[in-house]
Simulated assay, not measured.
Amino acid sequence: PAPREQAPEPELVVGVAPISSATPGMGQGGEGTGSGTGIGAGDGPGRGVRTGPRNLRQPAPLALRRYHPPEALRRGVSGTAVVSCRIREDTVLDQCRVLSETPPGQGFGAAGIAAAVAEYRFRPGMIDGRPDYDLRAVITVRFGRNAP
């Protein structure tokens, strides 16, 4: 094999480049006074594109008749329940809770939960195209023609 030969040292050039270029050149020295790091942590104010839950199936008012509290139905009392439910991956609602019922004490809250779980289906909200199962669906269930 041939003996190793040291590469020649490049010629040192000091001054302005003979032609301008959009790309940076090889600098010939100088010392900076800057400091800092690229390390950091934190949560910014934005989270990307967010959409709310989407109702996929809602029953007709007549279908809700089977959930109308029997005593209220017998007396001709209409009512409303507002319920909040978690949306599962299969679009079914669970972990429902009553937010309000009108008139109170007539059983419309429990009836609203039963109707929401059996009759409604929702697609979960999305964050940057991924399902957000932390968002809950809020549903107003109206029982009777004169429901508030």
Rank of each mutant, 00 (worst) to 15 (best):
I19N: 07
R136V: 12
R54A: 06
D128E: 09
R97G: 15
I39Q: 14
E71K: 11
E9V: 15
G52S: 08
L12Y: 12
A60G: 11
A7M: 08
I127N: 04
D132H: 08
P24Y: 02
G144Y: 04
G48R: 12
Q95R: 15
E9Q: 14
V77K: 07
Q58G: 12
L12I: 14
T91S: 05
G34Y: 04
P104M: 14
I19K: 14
G34T: 10
T51D: 02
G27Y: 05
E89W: 09
R75T: 10
R50E: 14
D128A: 10
P61R: 00
G109F: 00
A137W: 01
F122W: 10
Q95M: 15
G79Q: 02
G129F: 08
V83R: 00
E101T: 05
E5Q: 12
G48Y: 13
G144F: 06
A137P: 12
D94P: 15
Q6M: 06
D90L: 02
R88S: 06
C96W: 00
M26G: 05
A17I: 02
A63C: 01
I87N: 00
A41I: 12
L56I: 09
N146D: 15
I127F: 03
G25D: 07
A81S: 13
V13F: 03
A147R: 00
M26R: 13
P45V: 14
S35W: 06
P70W: 05
V82W: 03
M126F: 12
I113T: 07
G52Y: 07
G38T: 09
G42C: 07
A17M: 08
G79E: 01
P104D: 13
P103G: 10
R123E: 11
G76W: 02
V98T: 13
D132P: 08
Q106Y: 03
P124V: 03
N55H: 03
G44S: 14
R142F: 12
V117W: 01
A118E: 07
G105I: 06
V82Y: 03
P24F: 12
E71R: 13
S78H: 11
R145F: 08
Y67L: 01
R50P: 08
L135D: 08
Y120P: 01
N55R: 09
A114K: 04
A81Q: 06
P1D: 14
P45M: 10
R121Q: 00
V14R: 00
